[in-house]
Write a protein that binds this DNA or RNA. Structure first.
Length: 890
RNA sequence: GGGCGCAUAGCUCAGCUGGUUCAGAGCACCUGCCUUACAAGCAGGGGGUCACAGGUUCGAAUCCUGUUGUGCCCACCA
């Protein structure tokens, strides 16, 4: 019959329409009279490739942006990539290593040239992949956090923050990544239980000048004993009062160190004695400052021991090798008292997974106290809404306890810190070299200073110190409209920003709530005095069936592009959405996208049905009630859908559409209007059905853009530019409750007949005779033709039969229905069934009566509720009466 | 150690402001169908004391308290 394929082939269709949309420039947005609706993409790492998290994330954004377009907004989705300093530099270093080049062999400029070359070659692959998902980004606006203008924006902000006194240089203990050889912010350190691997060693230190007297300390890091500069004890610990003023001797190394007393030490923990290593532990560092202890830094930047250890055989060994070797030596010499296995958390670098080493160094810090104040308020008072709202607590907790942000990184790939140093360590912060020179000359009164006397900071900025400007700078906020004097952006000078900003919503994973979201809010308020976005939609994390996070190392993540190939982008989008309410993790299972693909196929076959029908002119009066039902259902679904999307309940929205289209439209409606085999459909009915189908496709388009466009064009020949992409939301019709009820009644009537057949194992091919007895038969009358042809009813009689003994009797609502299938009924079994039902309704009636006779209920409950209860009672009584009649008839 | 969540069918989860859209969906399972759009389908079916114990209320899956289990975030306990 039909020349259309039996199954839907997504690949051709998807490429075709994406190209079409691109060619027609549908994704482009320029400011106009319409209200704006902007989303800035969370920029993926420039060298990244698409993973399941991106799929979820970007599907949600695309749904929102397409919906906004359909509602008449000027929707703008800005794409782009992040330079991702550590991650990218690590990749480039790895790439060079494969070529046999070490980073240290190259100059900074040579290295950057290599990095840019790499970025040009592989960067942005991820954006190409997003196109396959159907992402309707305005590609002309693609931004990169190291674009020249963006680079300048970051520098401007650095200079400004320094001017405002928020930035300072500090000698602090920071988290050191020994692989990337850079500082990390607290947020970049992931603490994980080390598990069985972790050992706690008890080591004894001799007391200086005493015969065979010892103190025992416990440590998980015996290798740092080399750098011990004190033993600490609680001042009120009775056991050790006699040690005040004494010295201890570091085992093996034989260095004398003071025994200090400080309340920081817990008496009850371990032996009550603590070794103090100011250079390699944050707390010890504080203790060291307080007690003016010597600081011995025994590690090189790569985590190997340096000459400070004092024993040649340890110099140059990795810290973990040192640990092993030293423990052996301690044991051999009798200093190791015991070794226990404990659980203990070890911090690892988010990027390189190496164990983080606390390290003392000069770094740049951003004072967060003041600058973050307003950012807490706007979330507290819901100016910025977090979804789900439970994250408000998490956010508050972080903001209240916010710590200064270490923004310098010892890398080359990134925004180089615009600070220039003199030989003697004094420095100036400036936009460029020339300005720096002038500043230095003026500030330090060194008129004859030259450029060669200045040396720029070698470090670059943390990636997030650039991406926190994203919602501003993608619209060029810092380019022309930034006023250096006030440190603010003048919206009048940047119409683009004024038009799109604040953006509508940001969609991202909760793990970067602090890294990125909080900081964007801070920067937004600091430079525009406005919030950068109104809503933060936090997605869940995509996990595998066992609940494990998807990761490359576990190899448990399917390749999104393979999925798209197999199930279609629409199918994948459906699968991701259907199971992911905001904030809930999704346990990924192929079954999800399989359902999506099946849904595509269902739509496809609905189209095939309509395309394959013979058409005759005219219309069917008998379908009037069916149409009324469908009109109301569509109106109902449209309203409901709008509500769900407004509340960002996308998974419910997509399920609503699935249920409506599959069950109501396909299973019921299409079956009802489908002519019997060999007959033609009337042109009016077909046209009407096309309209319903079109409306459903418009509603579904944001979720499954490709197949809906294809169907749109297959239903009719379309004029150039008549694409579903541009269709506006259907005008909301009115919901006629009676029409809906009539449809429901018809459905349950047909179900009742099917049911009787299935139970009696009577084939649907066998015609049956049906009697209906009730007060008002008008609904059945109006559906009479539909019922007779669709339920294969040979006679539909609107009265009780003379003799119902060999008929199946059942209730549709309260209406009595008798089905004569020409069989002999097992009267006893039928009686039993009826008696059970009667028993149930008797109980039911008693409970409702009890409720209604309770005065407190009648008085306190909502009148509507009481009315409903009364209706329930009336229906119950009628049902009971009818059932008893059935029983009597038997 | 502090904070925040979660616990509903075999599995994954919906169930918004307590009251027939309150016990639901998808998948899985069982029965019957290759019916002329679709076997990636159609029709029917079984299956849940809504973790446990109290409380509030005329009424609780829904609100409160506690218990247990579980997940996440934060934190310097050697």
């Amino acid at each position: 019959m039909s020349e259309i394929n039996k199954t839907y082939d997504s690949t051709i269709v998807e490429n075709k329409w994406y190209q079409h949309w691109l060619e027609r420039g549908y994704f482009k947005s320029i400011p106009d009279d319409r209200p704006a609706y902007a989303i800035t993409i969370p920029p993926p790492n420039v060298t990244g490739i698409l993973h399941m998290g991106h799929m979820l994330n970007n599907t949600i954004q695309d749904v929102l942006i397409r919906t906004a377009r359909q509602k008449g907004f000027n929707a703008c989705w800005v794409p782009g990539t992040d330079h991702a300093s550590i991650a990218t530099e690590a990749k480039v270093v790895g790439m060079l290593r494969e070529k046999g080049i070490k980073k240290s062999d190259l100059s900074r400029d040579e290295f950057l040239a290599q990095a840019f070359e790499w970025k040009e070659k592989y960067g942005g692959i991820i954006l190409e992949q997003l196109k396959q998902l159907g992402a309707s980004c305005d590609w002309d606006r693609t931004s990169f956090t190291m674009d020249p203008n963006y680079y300048q924006a970051v520098i401007k902000v650095f200079v400004d923050l320094h001017k405002k006194g928020y930035l300072y240089r500090g000698f602090r203990m920071i988290n050191w990544d020994v692989v990337a050889k850079t500082a990390l912010s607290n947020e970049e350190v992931i603490y994980k239980e080390a598990g069985e691997q972790s050992q706690m060693y008890s080591v004894k230190y001799a007391i200086d000048g005493a015969e065979d007297e010892w103190v025992t300390i416990a440590t998980t890091r015996p290798e740092t004993i080399f750098a011990d500069t004190a033993i600490a004890i609680h001042p009120e610990d009775e056991r050790y009062q006699h040690l005040k003023g004494k010295m201890a001797i570091v085992p093996i190394i034989n260095r004398k160190i003071p025994i200090i007393f400080d309340e920081y030490v817990e008496k009850d923990f371990g032996t009550g004695c603590l070794k103090v290593t100011p250079a390699h532990d944050p707390n010890d560092y504080d203790l060291g400052l307080k007690h003016e202890l010597e600081i011995i830094d025994m590690f090189n930047d790569d985590g190997t021991a340096n000459e400070k250890v004092g024993i040649d055989s340890y110099i140059g060994l990795d810290r973990f090798v040192v640990r092993k070797k030293f423990v052996k030596e301690l044991e051999a010499e009798g200093f190791l008292v015991k070794t226990e296995t404990i659980t203990n958390k070890v911090g690892r670098s988010e990027r390189t997974n190496s164990v983080v080493e606390p390290k003392l160094s000069f770094q740049w810090f951003l004072d967060m106290q003041q600058i973050s104040k307003r950012a807490l308020d706007v979330v507290e008072n819901d100016e910025v809404a977090l979804l789900p709202s439970k994250y408000k607590n998490t956010y508050r907790h972080w903001m209240v306890n916010v710590r200064d942000w270490c923004v310098s990184r010892q890398l080359w790939w990134g925004h180089r810190i615009p600070a220039w140093y003199l030989e003697d360590g004094r420095f100036v912060v400036a936009h460029d070299e020339q300005e720096a020179l002038k500043k230095a000359q003026d500030e330090f009164g060194l008129a004859d200073l030259t450029l060669s006397d200045l040396h720029q900071d070698e470090d670059v900025l943390d990636t997030w110190a650039s991406s926190w400007l994203w919602p501003i700078e993608v619209f060029g906020g810092f380019d022309e409209a930034y006023d250096e004097q006030t440190g603010k952006i003048d919206f009048d000078k940047c119409p683009e920003l004024r038009y799109y900003y604040p953006t509508e919503v940001i969609v991202t994973a909760p793990e970067i709530l602090f890294f990125w979201i909080a900081r964007m809010i801070i920067a937004g308020l600091e430079y525009t005095d406005e919030i950068p976005f109104k809503t933060v939609y936090l997605t869940g994390i995509v996990r595998d069936k066992q609940g494990r996070k998807m990761s490359k190392s576990l190899g448990n993540s399917p390749d999104p592009l393979d999925l798209i190939k197999e199930y279609g982008a629409d199918g994948v989008r459906f699968g991701m959405l259907a199971s992911a309410p905001a904030g809930n993790d999704i346990l990924y299972d192929d079954k999800l996208v399989e359902q999506g693909r099946n849904f595509s196929n269902k739509l496809w076959n609905a189209l095939r049905l309509l395309k394959g029908l013979e058409v005759k002119s005219g219309h069917d009066e008998s379908l009037k009630t069916v149409f009324e039902w469908m009109d109301s259902r569509i109106a109902q679904v449209t309203i409901e859908l709008e509500r769900l999307v407004d509340e960002y309940r996308l998974s419910e929205a997509v399920r609503l559409l699935y249920g409506f289209i599959w069950d109501d439209f396909c299973s019921w409606y299409l079956e009802w209007i489908k002519p019997t085999y060999g007959e033609a459909i009337t042109s009016d009915t077909l046209e009407r059905t096309h309209q319903y189908f079109e409306q459903a496709m418009v509603l579904l388009h944001p979720y499954m853009p490709f197949i809906t466009e294809e169907i749109w064009h297959s239903i009719h020949e379309r004029k150039e530019g008549d694409d579903i992409f541009l269709q506006q939301y259907p005008v909301k019709g009115t919901v006629n409750i009676n029409a809906i009820k009539a449809g429901d009644q018809l459905k349950s009537f047909i179900t009742t007949i099917r049911n009787a057949r299935a139970k009696a194992l009577v084939s649907p091919k066998e015609a049956v005779k049906v009697y209906v007895s009730c007060k008002d038969t008008s609904v059945y009358q109006s559906f009479k033709e539909t019922i007779m042809s669709k339920a294969n009813v040979s006679e539909l009689i609107f009265e009780s039969p003379q003799d119902s003994k060999n008929m199946i009797s059942d209730l549709v609502g309260v209406d009595k229905v008798y089905i004569d299938m020409g069989l002999t009924i097992d009267v006893e079994a039928e009686k039993l069934k009826l008696e059970e039902e009667i028993k149930y309704y008797k109980g039911f009636i008693i409970s409702v009566e009890k409720k209604l006779s309770n005065e407190r209920f009648v008085q306190n409950a909502n009148p509507e509720v009481v009315e409903k209860e009364r209706q329930k009672l009336a229906d119950g009584i009628e049902k009971l009466k009818n059932l008893e009649e059935y029983l009597l008839a038997l």
